[in-house]
């Protein structure tokens, strides 16, 4: 079996609990927030490294983000990835899922040889989960979303166990393929400090390196716009104490639960 060329798309996100809405400007205030690698992307990196251990090949990380994202990609290199690429340009800013998946797809094509693209199931900031399928469409290849386990079949196709409602299904897809990895399906290995010291530099590409029309990137290329932004809830729990008779408490409880789940 030939070695696998794996590309993992990762995103540097602000820690969710440290992002707030500025009540005056009604805009997102993420300046003070610490950042981290999007947690599901960590599972994707681990999945990629485990596949490389099993089948041989290489693992490249690809991210779109501001220059400060580079040290976070170093974390992925310290986990064992071979290369890291950062798409960084003001022109990429303000992108919704359409230009994001487009830019990543172009980045993947520029990296060149690849069989498999892995992504985290969604990002903790945008939480759309739409980018992996979008990348697959731009690249015109097969996809498997919400994957929990991957393996190669003897005929060279990819076997993916993926979540469906109320269970899971096992599918075989042809390579190349784009896969999104479910949050928490594995335990991401910790960094190897030796690799941290010897990791290669992150390759940075801007919009013109990708050779794409700036009008299809970033804010300009996004069909959707954000109307209003507001604070949903404080990071602290609500701590609402229910009063009344048992029946009243039960009724209130049922109401609170029904607001979130149907059963």
């Amino acid at each position: 079996m030939k070695p696998l060329g794996i590309i993992v798309c990762v995103k540097v996100v602000p820690k969710p609990e440290e992002v707030s809405v500025n009540p005056e400007t009604r805009t997102l205030d993420r300046a003070k927030a610490r950042s981290e690698l999007n947690p599901p992307d960590m599972n994707a990196i681990e999945m990629a490294l485990a596949l490389r251990e099993r089948y041989g090949g290489s693992v490249s990380l690809l991210s779109m983000g501001p220059p400060f994202a580079a040290p976070y990609l170093q974390v992925g290199l310290a986990m064992g990835a071979d290369h890291a690429y950062l798409l960084s340009d003001r022109l990429f800013g303000g992108a919704d899922t359409l230009p994001t998946s487009f830019a990543l797809a172009r980045g993947i094509q520029k990296i060149g040889e690849w069989d498999l693209v892995l992504c985290g199931e969604e990002s903790s900031d945008g939480a759309t989960g739409q980018v992996p399928a979008g990348i697959a469409e731009w690249l015109d290849c097969s996809q498997a979303t919400y994957a929990m386990d991957l393996a190669l079949l003897p005929d060279g196709r990819l076997r993916a166990e993926r979540e469906i409602r109320g269970g899971h299904e096992v599918i075989a897809v042809s390579l190349p393929a784009v896969v999104s990895v479910k949050l928490g399906v594995n335990e991401p290995r910790f960094m190897d400090m030796e690799l941290r010291r010897t990791a290669p530099a992150v390759t940075v590409w801007n919009a013109s390196d990708l050779g794409v029309d700036p009008a299809s990137l970033g804010f300009e290329g996004s069909p959707t716009v954000v109307g209003a932004v507001w604070q949903a809830k404080s990071p602290e729990r609500r701590r609402e104490f229910l009063d009344g008779t048992l029946q009243e408490k039960a009724r209130l409880l049922a109401e609170r639960i029904r607001a979130l789940v149907s059963f």
Binding site: L98, G129, Q130, A133, G134, Y146, R162, I164, R165, P223
Partner: peptide, 23 residues
């Protein structure tokens, strides 16, 4: 926004070159 609904929506939105507001 079930696993399959999202699988389709993300793919379709790019095929149709349109915007998708998720979840």
């Amino acid at each position: 926004a079930t696993p399959n609904g999202r699988d389709l929506a993300g793919r379709l939105a790019v095929r149709l070159r349109t915007g998708l507001t998720a979840d």
